[in-house]
Amino acid sequence: MSTTLVIDSSTNKTIVALVSDGKLLFSASHDDPLAHGEVLPKLVAKALSVSNEIESVVVGMGPGPFTGLRAGIAFAQSFAFARDLNLVGVCGLDAIAAGKSDPEFLISVDARRKEVFYARYKDGARIGEPGVAQPITLAPFNLPIYGDQTNDFPDPLAMAALAKTKSHTEKPIYIRRPDAQPLPAGVKFRALTQLDLVEIFAIEKAAYGKEAWSMAQLKEEIAGKERFYLIAEVDQKVVGYGGAVKLADICDVLTLTVDESHRRKGIGRELLRRVLDWTRNQDCDAVMLEVRVGNEEAMPLYSSFGFIEISRRANYYGPGKTAIVMRKELR
């Protein structure tokens, strides 16, 4: 009898099982998207109290949210090394697909940032590599979709069985692509002038309240040198503005604001794209910007342009208001 320790941390569920000759000796899971690191050792300790005679280790290599995924892989690698055991990595989506009998279907699991990891299966086999997409883009496939949404998670028996086939994976499956969106219709973009100040100030005030720049600050700001400001207009009315400044070898995106009633139309995205076009010609190393904690909805936009969170600054926007600093390379 040979016992396999099976571990998967690629979904919100941390899964641990012992599989022996195609049967479950032990199986446990815990649902918490942020606790894989803490939960996994506890579940494995429980498993070991059932049987301490482990002959091999199988681990899910993803795709899945990175931090949880890495907890499972790091643990499995160390455990296997400590006991001098063979370690096999398998694709978690394949282990969800294994129980499905439809001729063709999709498997998708939460990838955070409003996206899912997915793969397509036909006649029991995966078609191509797993991908990442917004859930809405999977609808045109017109296929049944299984995954965490339908309460389907990687099946430990399937993982142990997959480990015996040739579909192994040595490395974590990390996938993400930047998303692109069409231009907003009916919106004009042009350079900001002193004449726009009154309209801008109104938007600024509505968006930031007490922390808004004052009229005097705005005026001084746009008059400064090595700056680029532009506005978005709908029906000759200002609906958004954005700007950046060049400071030595770094450009800083100073503001990106869209009037409440015109948000989620891609205006911010286009403003940012144009501001970034300007920064590209400033002979700088990188562009940086700050996002207020609590305004994380802006982060997927910045991420999709290649900004990466590099640090957090406590009390940046006043007491208790942390800023997330993001950076994008220009060279």
């Binding site: 894989h36 690191g37 996994l40 050792p41 494995v44 300790a45 070991l48 931090t67 890495r70 907890a71 499972g72 790091a74 643990f75 499995a76 690698q77 160390s78 455990f79 296997a80 090394f81 400590a82 006991r83």
Partner: peptide, 15 residues
Amino acid sequence: LIVGTSAAEGLALGL
């Protein structure tokens, strides 16, 4: 940190 603690837990339980 979690990569480190997970690797360490794996060693500790393995050994």
